[in-house]
Every structure is written in C-alpha cells, then in structure tokens.
Design a protein around this nucleic acid. Structure first.
Lengths: 208, 208, 208, 208
DNA sequence: AATGAATGAGCTTTCATTCAT
DNA sequence: TATGAATGAAAGCTCATTCAT
C-alpha cells in the first residue's frame, strides 16, 4: 500500500469511526429514541447523506456501533490471556479490573449496550454479534474459576454457577452505573465484586 | 354512586386498563421505538383518537404504563411486609421468590422494564417512578438484611453493600432471562441467588 | 346506512378519488418521473401525509390509479354487451367507438396506461390487474368477430389473428394520440380502424 | 492519428459505449425511474465519478443512450434503401422484416423504447430524437407504399392512412412482445402484419 | 364517550453531482 | 484518465396530534 492509498484509507476509517463514536455519544446524550441520523452526522462533522452512504441505514449504523463495542471488549478480554504465566487469581483480578475499566464500563458505552437490551427488535442483532462471544467469555471464565477452585482445594464449589452469577452481576452493576445512582463508581462496583469472591474464597488475597 | 354511573365508570376504567395492557404488550412485542398509538389502540380495540382523548399524549400513556408496572411490583413487594410476624429470613426468601415470580419476572414484563430503563435518564417522569422507588426497595431490603445480620451475629457483614449487590444481581439475571440464554429459567436464577446468600450466611437454612 | 354515515363515506371516497384523479393529472402533466406525492397531494388539495395514510405508499397510489382506469374501461366495455339484441356489426362499432371515446382514450388517461408500460417494475402489477381482463376482452372480441364472419360467409378469415391485430392496433393508436402527432385525433384513429375492417369485410357498412 | 493516440481513443470509446450499453441494460432491467448513475456505472465496470466526467450529467447519458438506439434503428432502416434496385414490394418486406428482427425488436430494446416514449412529451431532447425521426420514417414508408400502389394500380388506396396504420401496428405489437402475451413471437407479429397487407394488396405475393 | 379522517413536522433515505487526488 | 469519498437537496414516509362529528 503506497502512502497516498494508506492516507486515503485512514481518512476513510476516520470518518467511519467518527460516525460510530458520534452514535455512541448521541445515545448516551439523548437516548436511542432521540438519536437521529441528522444529530449523529452533525456530531461527527459529516453530512447526513454521507452517514447513509457509509452505513446504508440507521439500523445498520446502530448495529455497527454495537459491533464496535463488542470488538473492543473482545480485544481487551483477549489481552488478559496473552500472558500465559498469569496465575488463576491474577487472571480473575484482571477480568474484574477490565470489566470495570473506565474505557470499557463508561456510562457512554454502557448506554449503547443497554439500548440494545432495551429494544426487542435488536435482540436478533445482539445475538448474532455477541452470542458466540458471550459463550466464549463464559467458558474462559469458568476455566479460570475451575483452576482457582482446584488450586485452593474448594472442589465443592460449582464453577458453572459462580460464572453465571459473575456475568449477571457485571451486567447488573453496569446498569447501576448507567443510572448513575449514588456510590456507583466503577471502584464501588469492583469492591462489591471482590467482596463476592472473598466470600467464596475466604483465604484468598485479591491484592493487585 | 348509582348503578348507571358505576357501570359507566367501570367501562371507562376498562378502556383505560385495556390501553395500558396494550402498551405493555406492544413494547414487549416491538420495543419502545416502534410502539405507536396506532398499534396500541388497535391492540386495545379502541380508536386512535380515543387513546389520545383518554391519555392526552403518547408520553402520558407511556408514563401511565410504567406507573402501572411499578405499582404492580410495589403491591407485590408490600404484601411481603403485611405479615408483621415474618422472620427476617422468611422476608428475604419472600423477596427473592417475588422477584422471580413468573408474574413479575416474565420475559414480557422484563422487556418493558428494560425499555423504560434505557430512557430513564432522559425523561424526568420515568426517573421519579423508577429511581425513587428503587431507593425505597433498597432501604427496605437493607433493613431486612440488617435484621438478619443482627439475628445471626454476623456484624462484620456490610448490609449496604450486600443490598446493592442483590439488587444488581436481580437486574443482571432479569437480563439473562430476557435474552433467553441457556439455563436461565426463573428457578435457576433463584438458585444462584440462594447460593449467594448461603455463602454469606453459611449456617442459615433457606428452606421455604 | 344513515345520512351522516353516508355523507362520511362519500367524503372518504371523494378524497380517495381526488388523489387518483390528481395522480392521473400529474402523470399526464409532468410524467411518471416527476410525479411526486407532494405534487399529487397539492393537486388533490390534501396534505402529503394524508396521501400516504390513504394509499400506504407512492407505488400503491400509482397502482390504484391503474386499477381505477382498468375498472373504468371494464365498465364501459361491459355496457356494450348489456344490450343482448345488438347485431355483431353494431357490437364491433360500439367497441371501436368506446375504445376511442374521449372519456376512455384521452391523452391524460393514455399517459397513465403508458407509464405502466414504460416501467418494467410495473409489469407484474399490470399483469395482476389487467391480464385476466385483457384475456376476456380478447375472447369477447373474437366472439363478435366470429359471429360477423359467419353472418357474412367469410369463413376463410381467421378471427383469432384479426382480434390480435385489432387489440395491437388500438394500443399503437393510443400511443400516437399520446405523442400528439399531427392528425391523431380520436376521429382519425377510428377512421384508420374502420378502414382496416372495411378491407376485411368489403361489403359491410359501418354506418352508425 | 498515431497508434498510441488511436488506442487511447479506442479505450475512450470503449468506456463510452460500455456506459451506454449499461444504461440500456439498466433501463430494461429496472426501468427509467430506478436507473441510477451508481447502478449504470457498476454494470459498466467504471466508477460513478467517471460516468459523470464522461457524460456531464445523467440526462445527457440518457439522451446519448436514446440517440444510440435511434441511430442503430436508423442504420438498419437506411440499409434497406441502399440497394437502389429493390422493388417497392421488396422494400416493404425488408421494412417489416427489419422492424421485427430480433436485434431491433428484442424485449430489452422495446422496454427501453417504451421508457423513453413515456417521457418524450416532457424532455425536448427526447422529442427531437424520437419524433423527428418518426416523421422521416413515415415519409419514406409512404413513398414505398405510394410506389406500390402505383405499380399495382390501386390508386383508390390512401398511402397516408395505411402508413399511419402500419406504424401504429408496429408499436402496438412491440408492446405485446414486451408484455409477453401468448403467441406474440416476432414471427407471429410479422404474420399479422403480412396478413394486413395481403388484405390490402390481395394479388401480391409477400414471399421473401 | 368515542370515532377516524386529516394534518404537518420531522424523520430516514436516495441520488445526481462535486471535487480532491 | 479515472477514482470514490463526500455533499445536500429533495424525495418518500411515519406518526403524534387535532378536530369535526
């Protein structure tokens, strides 16, 4: 790829990304119901026609925004397992830290996730984008937990159920962050999660 | 009130409730964004003009529907505390049973709750219905938990944090029910919740 | 139907018909390409939204206009055969007179017919509306012609082929009327048609 | 013109013709209304920008395409009169054979002609291409017919009216081909035309 | 009390056209 | 010569709302 082509491509990607960022921004600012192509385009600094030209339809722009968040999350998740030498306990800590990292669990981004949860018509789109990934996260989380259970001789614990509980808890806490109730800082969420695991593994230290 | 007037009033109320039921049905079927007065009226079997005449505006119909759901939940919640002789442990059990009772935690109603949740930040009326109530539930739940902690001499437990965790967990599990992932029957959800509390109160029996 | 309801219905039909008339008018005035809902609504004196409310889509409004013309033609055609005592020659004359009657073969209405001929996407719609009718016209015309052939002992003539020729000729002449070339008055068209039949039935008098 | 320039010019012409062919293809496939520069360019295998660069405007591309069809027909027509020794009867036969030759009277090209026909009234450029040519064909056809009438001593026949009838009949039959009604093969059309002339000139042989 | 025809503001979408490269 | 990203005007369409009945 020569320089001119590369710069061309970067410009292309830039506007594509600008529109996705603007969509996320708009959903967070005014909700899905009042998010219009006109507003998104204006936020992105491109013409309304261009947004359509680029994404074919409003629905596709929304779905692309979900896809972006999904990819972003997947990347951050995979990074955790890049380091093969991590102990199960450190893996667990890294997962929790990642799930409530401001880049992942910002109100802006959570707003988009919940927009997809809130409109039944998006459920098929959500499933086609996230279902397989969600299954992978579940399996990998269960693996971490199983290792931890083995390491600490707590074989009476059910890795499956604890994993389900953790994943549900993350979603529930994200929702509290979105609603912006008192105390629901990301730090507070992590504290609740750590407390949950401290109860399960009383002898474990979750010091980072 | 004479008989004629009463029957008149009942008819009035009947149409009122028909429209609210139809609104909930519509939101569950097609989402908030695609819920139109035309569709709701048609589901309710009344004219579009009448829906307006009765609720003044679409927003007011939506608010009334949310209020209805909120009242329904509140009624079921309050019933738990009607019996003054219940022990804290039975109160906790009743809360959990109620939160995952099919009448409360049906996919239809969960879909509607999530629809409103996602707009809560932008519509003050939703905020006062959802969040103010949430605060009340939080306080009452914390009271139950505090009693439990005291009864079982577990004063090192933090009622505040456990309450937050419980409420987050309920929302997280409701979402799993909505998205219909494997295993997420209401019974399975309750099992996860009970496991959570068994870990916190190891000596406690959660037999109903 | 009481008076109020009837007047209501007439008003309804009136606007429906106004829009169809306006569509025909617009196609004749500016062609299919420049016929917009905005212009049609304005011609009809109703709002743009109403045109959509009434006809669901632009395409459906266009198709409804074709349907109207098709019905109108069918009615005029059927009237010819109401009188059971007509001789074949009078039936033939009546068919020709009808096909070039100003109410049927006006440039305004021909413009609509040709709009449907001109857009391949309308061919399915045309066929579903007109195909069966066209077959009926063909059969009935052939019957008239067969009677005529029998009456005048011209059994060597092929009723089938003459009927096809007649129907093609009508369409071809309608097109000439539409293009408004010199001499193509409806009277001139009829003269050409009569000449065609005089050649086939030299001893026949086509005096009305 | 040197070799390089010539090849350059051929490439230029090639793209020019590709776009015209694609335009005709597109109109036949989806109609004039749904023919877009984007689709035409894509069919032609060139960029959208290039189509504009080459034809300045969409209207000009359409006009050029109509002009191409018109020239093609004119060329085929003129070839008939190249041979100065043809008898009038052979000229007539050649005209008929040409008008229903598959290269001229294919459904694809008929569809395109009808698309332009329907807009002829509104676009002066179409008018000058279609209607002015039509006048020439009419005059030349009348000349052939007049010669035929003279040769066969049928001076009571009206060359003018027969010519008009023939031209109308061709258009009417083309339309039947377009709509693909039963029996309307090009051969069947020719048979109907020949029958028409056999009736007018009973002693004539139309053997090719 | 209840209807439903009619409105119009505002949305999504389309597409010929432009222009920097 | 040829590209394709980007524009913006104008189209089709939706829908809460109004209002005469």
């Amino acid at each position: 790829m020569n320089k001119a082509l590369k710069s061309e491509h970067e410009k292309l990607s830039a506007n594509h990304q600008k529109l996705i960022d603007a969509t996320i921004e708009s959903i967070a600012q005014r909700g899905l119901g009042d998010t219009t192509i006109a507003h998104v385009s204006s936020l992105a600094g491109v013409s309304q026609g261009y947004a359509h030209f680029r994404f074919k339809s409003k629905e596709n722009l929304l779905i692309s925004s979900l896809q972006f968040l999904s990819n972003e999350y997947m990347d951050s998740w995979n990074k955790i397992f890049d380091d093969k030498k991590l102990t199960p306990i450190d893996q667990l800590i890294n997962i929790i830290e990642n799930d409530f990292h401001p880049r992942i669990a910002s109100r802006k981004k959570i707003a988009v996730w919940f927009s997809f949860y809130s409109e039944v018509k998006f459920i098929p789109a959500y499933q086609s984008i996230c279902q397989d990934q969600d299954q992978i996260y579940f399996e990998q989380f269960k693996k971490v937990l199983s290792d931890l259970i083995k390491d600490y001789n707590k074989e009476d614990l059910n890795a499956d159920e604890i994993s389900e509980t953790y994943l549900a808890l993350v979603d529930g806490l994200w929702q509290k962050i979105l609603f912006d109730r008192k105390n629901y800082s990301n730090e507070f969420c992590k504290k609740l999660i750590y407390n949950y695991f401290k109860n399960i593994f009383p002898n474990l230290s979750f010091k980072k």
